[in-house]
Simulated scan of single mutants.
Amino acid sequence: MSYPFEHDDETLWDAGYHSGQLYASLAQGAAGFLDVPSGLTPTPQGGCDVDGEMFQAFVERLYGLYASTTNEVLRGLAQGLLVTSLVLLDRAGGTITLRPEDVAVLDGVKSTLARSMAV
């Protein structure tokens, strides 16, 4: 059983059911914490529609949190959600600007993770 994330009739990630549910739940929780909509809308079929504009704003805000703190626990908690979100954002045709000091780390982890995120 899968949990697809779709944008404009295109599957961005055909996640496993548990992985997809966990990611969607974490994104909704982070969106509430960040006071911004996640851009993810659960579907009756069991998955999420991704609103490109809202999702990009969410990812920008999440990255802002990640980039603005020196608290390693907070950065670690945000990083997994951020990297997964960056993969989805790329696949939806969006992008955000990363600080030069974050590019190598986040792009490397994102590239590795993207290979395991089936479409």
Score class of each variant (00 low, 15 high):
P4K: 09
C48W: 02
L89F: 06
L86R: 11
L98H: 03
Q21Y: 10
T70K: 14
A27F: 03
G52Q: 12
V103T: 12
D102E: 09
Q79A: 15
A104M: 07
L26G: 06
T11Y: 09
L40P: 00
G47V: 11
S116N: 06
V50Q: 01
A15S: 15
V103R: 14
G108W: 09
E53G: 04
D107H: 13
D8G: 00
F58M: 02
A67N: 13
G64L: 13
S111E: 15
Q28I: 04
R115P: 00
L88T: 03
Y23I: 08
Y3D: 08
G52P: 00
L98S: 03
A118P: 06
G64K: 12
E101W: 02
S25L: 13
A114E: 11
A30D: 03
R99H: 10
L89Y: 06
Y3Q: 08
L89C: 08
G93D: 12
S116W: 10
G32M: 09
L26F: 09
L98W: 00
L77G: 12
Y17A: 14
M1R: 15
F33D: 14
L113S: 02
A24E: 10
G16Y: 10
G47S: 13
M117D: 08
D35C: 05
A27Y: 01
M1C: 13
G29M: 10
A30T: 03
D49M: 04
A92Q: 07
D9C: 00
G76T: 14
A31F: 00
D49I: 01
V87H: 06
K110T: 03
S2I: 09
L88D: 05
P100L: 07
Y23R: 04
G80Q: 11
L113H: 06
R61N: 07
G93M: 15
A27E: 05
G76K: 10
L82N: 03
A57C: 07
T41W: 00
E53A: 08
A92V: 04
V83N: 05
A114F: 02
V59P: 03
S116T: 14
S68C: 10
A67L: 08
E6K: 12
S85C: 10
S19A: 14
Q45L: 10
L62C: 10
W13C: 05
E101R: 13
R75E: 07
L22H: 08
Q56R: 15
T70C: 05
G32Y: 05
Q28F: 08
Y3W: 13
D107G: 02
G93R: 15
A31V: 01
R91L: 07
G76W: 03
D14Y: 06
S19W: 05
V83G: 06
G46Y: 12
S38R: 02
R75Q: 15
T84N: 15
A24P: 02
H18G: 02
Y3P: 02
S68T: 11
D49V: 02
Q56W: 01
V59E: 01
